[in-house]
Design a protein around this nucleic acid. Structure first.
Lengths: 232, 232
DNA sequence: TCAAAAGTGTTGCTGCTACACCCATGC
DNA sequence: GCATGGGTGTAGCAGCAACACTTTTGA
């Protein structure tokens, strides 16, 4: 076989082939907390430990496709916002053998995932502040993903992926607070948002968390696209 | 063989194994321009085209080790600042066959690399504004790397890796200007730097670019470590 | 003496932070 | 009527951008 790869002179037969996986950091927002969907290992080694949902990349699928497939396997969800975080490739990261893994994070709606699938995988939600022990370098992956999410949420309108189509401003603010890990000033928060002019105020109110009720808003993609600036 | 990998139930024999490579975006600074070290393909396909220096990852080395090895192959340089950019894995990115590639960028000193090696590889420097056509998705890799470098240089003292140990403030400013792609105000630039208090002013001057001469400075790592804040 | 690059402070403005009270409603 | 969360405007401050002239020296 004389096939050559890429810009290299290496022949196929000389190649070290290393299993390549994707791990998904699945974020959800609920009860004013940021949560993570983890799967429970019911096989050895590390039986009983928690881990990110992962899987191996197939020959005929791209990285992003693999990430979406694996997310779909666990949640039944499609068309989800996902972003590559980093690739982890320390030789000993998986004691079971050399595996390189590309980490992706996903922002999903906790109300929409398929509960049956999640049960099948022995998966469960954990608040970010109360994460259980996780296998391998998954803890590091989560930390890196969170940092990227923090950056990204300040510069792009991606937080809305964690909220239902209609949401209240207190909800949105709470989302930013738990992701950024700091409390925000209510008036300043709203001022910034209104200046961006990307929200549509609806005539409906949500009464689930107060007697007075909070107005519902909707993210207006068209408005954002016409002037794609976002800074929080 | 019953070996199991990671959190998955997939057995080794079911795995698709995909060649995994590293590509290096090698930045250098010279003549007040940001430059890139590219290698010339002298084999088909794409003979005559330019490409990033790359290579396949070995079974017994980590990702970062692979990146450093490949950089060393071309430049003879060790202990270089490198950072992972992103992993590229579209199915058809390399028409020669499926290859997933992890992109790393490196900041090196143009005065220090091994010219013989570079000649052997038919490598050559290109100004960032005058890049030749490159193979595969290497252009995209460069763009992503530059964006990361722009971010990073504003928040960390990494620009010094592109300058000799002793450098002048006009040099440093020019470096920031070409990386960020904008002109900066001389006085504001210097003010910010002095406030950071991480530079050591030397008694020597550099006369290579002016008659008056510009004072030489040195980055003081200790000072930076004692108060690791950096914002430009 | 002039050309070319190095070096140096001040002012105005903008954008951010801090902050307190009224409203609507269910109980 | 009171407790709870929703909603609203302003003033001060800090940090950023804009800006011009003097110095040195080689040719």
């Amino acid at each position: 076989m004389e096939k050559r790869f890429g810009q290299s002179n290496i022949h196929y037969r000389d190649l070290d082939l290393i299993p390549l996986a994707v791990d998904c950091i699945i974020f959800g927002f609920n009860n004013n907390a940021l949560e993570l969907l983890l799967v429970h290992r019911n096989i050895e080694p590390k039986k009983g430990k928690w881990s990110l949902m992962g899987g191996f990349i197939k020959k005929e699928e791209g990285l992003h496709d693999a990430a979406h497939r694996i997310l779909f396997q666990l949640t039944g969800l499609n068309n989800i916002y996902m972003e590559q975080v980093e690739t982890f490739g320390d030789v000993d990261r998986d004691p079971g053998g050399r595996v390189v893994s590309v980490a992706y994070y996903a922002l999903i709606l906790k109300e929409e995932y398929n509960e049956k699938l999640v049960e099948e995988y022995n998966a469960s939600w954990f608040s970010l502040n109360e994460l259980p022990e996780m296998i391998f370098d998954h803890k590091t992956m989560v930390e890196k993903a969170l940092k990227r999410l923090q950056q990204k949420i300040k510069t792009g309108p991606i937080g809305f992926n964690l909220l239902p189509e209609k949401f209240t401003l207190p909800q949105l603010q709470s989302l930013y607070e738990v992701i950024l890990g700091e409390t925000l000033d209510k008036r300043n928060f709203r001022k910034k948002l209104f200046e961006l002019d990307i929200l549509e105020k609806l005539d409906e109110k949500d009464y689930s968390s107060s007697k007075k009720g909070a107005f519902l808003y909707r993210f207006n993609k068209e408005k954002y696209k016409s002037t794609p600036v976002f800074k929080m």
